Amino acid sequence: MTPAEADAAVELLESALAVPSPSGEEHPLAVHLAARMREAGLTASIDAAGNVIGETEPRPGPTVMLVGHLDTVPGELPVRRTGGVITGRGAVDAKGPLAAMISAVAAEADFPGRLVVAGVVEEETPRSRGAVHLGRTRPVPDALIVGEPGGWQGVVLGYKGKLDLRYRVTRAATHPSNPEPKATEVAAAFWQHLLDLLGPDAGHASFGTPGATLVAMHGDAAAAALEIGVRTPVGFDIPAFTAALRERADGGTLDVLNAVGAVLSPRTDPVVRALTAGVRAAGGTPRPTRKTGTSDMNTLAEVWDVPMATYGPGDSALDHSDDEHIAVDDYLRGIAVLRTALRHLAALPPRAAAPATGPAAADTRPDRPDTHPAAPAARQPEGVLR
């Protein structure tokens, strides 16, 4: 990377950080990045969901899609560069990875196939509306890189799935001394039933086990409600689990607000291998990891059975924090890693032309929350990594 290219890449990130983009308010940033993509020689557009999409000139080779997200959690953070560090909301999660992707794609504009870079909306919300729209409307690519922070030497193989639940129960108003169970007591018992169903080994520390969080609870003796998040491992049977919970609802109602399965790519996956080669070429030691959170890799794996992995510079421990920052050197190394990975992926054979949609491309979230496609066989567990 030349000094001029490095300066341009850093300025792109700083300019993106200067445009606030909390979930639902991404349009100004999409417009800004579309203009910057065009200046860099890409064609650019904003789709019906509000995603910004940049593309290189199409050629006969494979199509590689790189997907980051535009939105951040709420809360502005002053943008500043001090001592080789850039601070700002989204510097890590995930404008840093997205800006690195845009810079890498622009620098590899002579790619022998087609490169597509997308900044999607509402990744930080339960529905991941932008990624869902991509999966429903875009042609299936030959390979996918999702942009999330994992450190410039990290290659993320997979993420746990996520199940968002709401439990509500009512009971007749009565005196506190009445021995009949109160709504709050029934809700507390339901939470315990859920933990019992998950088993004694459940927890968030391991990729191979489910873990539950009681996100919120409110109510009184007459009416109570729980908001629950469950992180699920590969192979977890979401429909069977929710059916078992409903059997223990004790007159309450259980709503599935969101359901997305776990995803795990093997180390032999072409995208994993390409990113690993990129890290080595940049002088690093690849660190393949599995994360207990959830990303748009989960969402897109449900509709695109293609080689995929997640990559992005930045320390994920700083996600959403008031000290969110990224080292300039790490950001620039991330761009170099991506450029090398794209050159490796140029050797992929392009798939036959196929429509973007099909049975798997429907939005399975709130409309069909209990129907959950199984993870592709190529992404079954390789064992537990803590």
Rank of each mutant, 00 (worst) to 15 (best):
A189L: 13
L342E: 11
V92G: 11
W304K: 06
P239A: 08
G130L: 08
G334E: 02
K182M: 13
P210A: 09
P210M: 06
L226G: 11
P288S: 07
A8P: 03
Y311S: 07
A361M: 04
R80N: 03
A221K: 03
A183T: 00
P349V: 05
V155I: 13
T371G: 05
A277M: 05
L29D: 07
M297W: 05
L318V: 03
T268C: 00
V215D: 10
A361D: 05
G151Y: 09
A106N: 12
I335K: 06
M1I: 08
F207H: 10
A172C: 03
P233K: 11
L165I: 07
T72M: 10
R379G: 15
P307N: 06
V279T: 02
D220Y: 04
A354K: 10
P22H: 14
G252F: 06
R114Q: 15
A277N: 08
E148A: 12
T63E: 15
L197K: 04
D367T: 14
G83K: 04
P349I: 04
A8K: 09
P313Y: 12
H133D: 07
A301Y: 06
L226I: 07
V256T: 14
L342C: 06
L13G: 09
V156G: 01
P181Q: 11
D71H: 01
A48K: 13
L33R: 03
D305G: 10
L33T: 00
V120I: 14
L345H: 07
E324D: 10
T299R: 07
D305M: 01
V337Y: 07
R290D: 01
V120L: 05
L70H: 11
V120E: 00
S45V: 10
L254K: 04
D330Q: 14
A109V: 05
A222F: 00
R339I: 03
G235V: 08
R81W: 03
F190K: 04
F241L: 13
